[in-house]
Structure formats: C-alpha cells, structure tokens
C-alpha cells in the first residue's frame, strides 16, 4: 500500500490535472517551500530588502541627473 508521501511524490511525475489544480490553489495562497539551492540563490543575490534599497538608490540617482 502506498503512503500519502508516495502518492504525492508520484503526482510530481504523473501530473494528475485535478490534483495539480488543488496544489496550485494552495501554493498560490501559501507559497511553496524554498529548496536549499533556492535559498543559496536568494543569499547570492542579496536580501529582498537590499535589492529594493539598490533599486531605490538607482532611481534616486536617475532623478537627480
């Protein structure tokens, strides 16, 4: 007998459309877990605050040229 974990893992392969719709609905409201690689990418790119600060700084410079 398969476990729930097995069934959901199989879903990642088989892509049942009804399950996919429910999963998308849930993840659109709560987001999906970031993998370690994703977290490393975020870290490499800087924190969202830093990125926002850089954007504001660039905008400020443009406005004052």
């Amino acid at each position: 007998m398969a476990s729930l974990k097995d069934l959901f893992d199989y879903q990642k392969f088989a892509g049942n459309s009804r399950l996919e719709a429910m999963i998308k609905d849930t993840e659109s409201r709560y987001g999906s877990k970031l993998s370690i690689d994703d977290l490393e990418l975020v870290s490499a790119a800087g924190t969202p605050d830093q990125i926002q600060q850089q954007k504001e700084l660039l905008k400020h410079k443009k406005d004052h040229v």
């Binding site: 007998m1 398969a2 097995d6 069934l7 959901f8 088989a14 049942n16 009804r18 399950l19 429910m22």
Partner: peptide, 18 residues
C-alpha cells in the same frame, strides 16, 4: 514493486482531497 501507484490511485486521492 510499486504496482499501487497508478493513475487510478491519484484520482482516488483527488476525490478524497476534494
């Protein structure tokens, strides 16, 4: 060995989750 993992079992899961 995993004969139970098939399209039918995912439909059953979808029915239950709904």
């Amino acid at each position: 060995y995993q004969g139970i993992l098939d399209a039918e079992s995912l439909e059953e899961l979808a029915d239950a989750l709904e």
